[in-house]
Amino acid sequence: MIITRNSFPFPFCTLLLALSAPLLARELEPLTDSGELYFAEEEKKKSEKEQGEDDRPGFVMRSLQQMEIQRDWLSKGYVGMWRGLDGYFSDGATFENENDSEMRLETKQTWRAEGEIESDVRLRVRVDLPNTEKKLKLFFSSDEESNVEERVRSVSTGERIERDKSVSGLEFSPDDKDRKWRRKFSGGVRLRSSLVPYVKFQLKREWGEEDSDNWFHLFRQKVEYFDDDGWGTSTEFSSTHPVGDVFIFSFWLEADYEDQFNFFEYANVYTMTQVVSERSAVHYRIGAIGASQPVPRVNGVFYGLSWQYQLYEDWIFLGISPEVFYPRELNWSAEPSITAKLEIFFAE
């Protein structure tokens, strides 16, 4: 995610930072057994009584704590359900300690300069059955049909969790991380009125180490076939490199082709990420999108930024993304917007 210059005012972002300040304060509270910082239980009770309700968590914190209780209960039940199914099919084999089953809910809302408001709701589900069959996963996604522009830009598209746009199936990864070229096979159905079968093959290669001071490159090639739309392919290449202690530079290229439309869509994005703290980062980006028909050309350029903040623990993330888009179809007139995104993770 990223953040850029924009014609939008930033007091809104400042307000969000102010609201999240109490969350940071809880991490700075010293807890030691030293004589200077330790208080006897009676002294603590007396102090609490004198201060009354002033030291109680604020409304936002209390709400998040209640949400965490419900989230932990749901996550435990969700992962436990698939862990039990894994044990059933593996005849009681010894469970692996880790289960990567995960459910992610994403909501996004975009405000445009002309007054339009659009919102998205997306759901992704991944089921891990490590003992049933090594590296075999069930998955569900509500946004499989997104195109290159939707994946590159941060704005909402009015998407909802609809059955006819969702896909579900099995994913198998036979190769471990030490293999240079890693393969992934998947197959399943698109959940329309009549189930539409599909298959997908992915090939992935990495060069370098992600956490090193050198360049890290990633290449990914996907080929898929849907029974109603025909076949399509996607080629992706990205490179990242640290710049100093708090910045990371990256560029990303992608080209998609669908046989039913008979043309390529492509994108090129450059990003500079600034690590603000352990809980937040700002991504500054500039990019272009285009197509091969009617002639190879650029159909739009954009610049923007995204501020990403770990709102609570490791399962609620907030993002704010101002952006300015210049589409060819509007004679390169500026289209400013600002998007807010909330992601909630349910995992073990």
Rank of each mutant, 00 (worst) to 15 (best):
D120F: 03
R122H: 09
L123G: 01
R124D: 06
V125R: 02
R126Y: 11
R126Q: 09
L129V: 02
P130R: 00
T132V: 08
T132C: 07
T132A: 12
E133T: 15
K134I: 06
K134C: 09
K134P: 08
K134R: 13
L136N: 10
K137C: 02
F139T: 05
F139A: 10
F139D: 09
F140E: 00
F140Q: 00
S141V: 14
E144S: 11
S146H: 13
N147E: 14
V148K: 13
E150P: 00
R151I: 12
V152K: 02
R153V: 03
R153E: 01
R153K: 05
V155I: 13
S156A: 08
S156R: 06
S156T: 05
G158E: 07
I161C: 04
E162D: 10
E162P: 06
R163E: 15
R163H: 12
K165G: 11
V167W: 03
G169H: 00
G169F: 02
L170K: 02
L170F: 04
E171G: 06
F172A: 01
F172V: 01
K177D: 15
R179E: 04
K180V: 14
R182T: 00
R183T: 12
S186G: 09
G187S: 03
G188R: 01
V189Q: 07
V189H: 11
L191Q: 07
R192Q: 13
S193Q: 14
S193H: 11
S193I: 06
S194K: 10
S194G: 14
S194P: 13
L195A: 07
P197E: 04
P197A: 09
K200Q: 12
F201T: 01
Q202L: 03
E206R: 01
E210R: 03
E210T: 10
D211Y: 12
D213V: 05
N214M: 15
F216Q: 00
F216Y: 04
H217R: 05
L218Y: 08
F219C: 07
F219P: 07
R220E: 08
R220F: 08
R220I: 02
Q221S: 08
K222F: 12
V223I: 12
V223Y: 04
V223R: 01
E224K: 08
Y225C: 08
Y225D: 07
Y225W: 12
F226E: 10
D228H: 15
D229H: 08
W231I: 06
S234Q: 02
S234I: 01
E236Q: 11
E236T: 10
S238T: 11
S238D: 06
S238M: 15
S239F: 12
V243C: 06
G244S: 05
V246F: 14
F247N: 08
I248S: 15
F249A: 01
S250F: 01
F251Q: 08
F251E: 03
W252H: 14
D256K: 03
D256E: 04
Y257L: 13
Y257W: 11
Y257F: 14
F261H: 10
F261M: 08
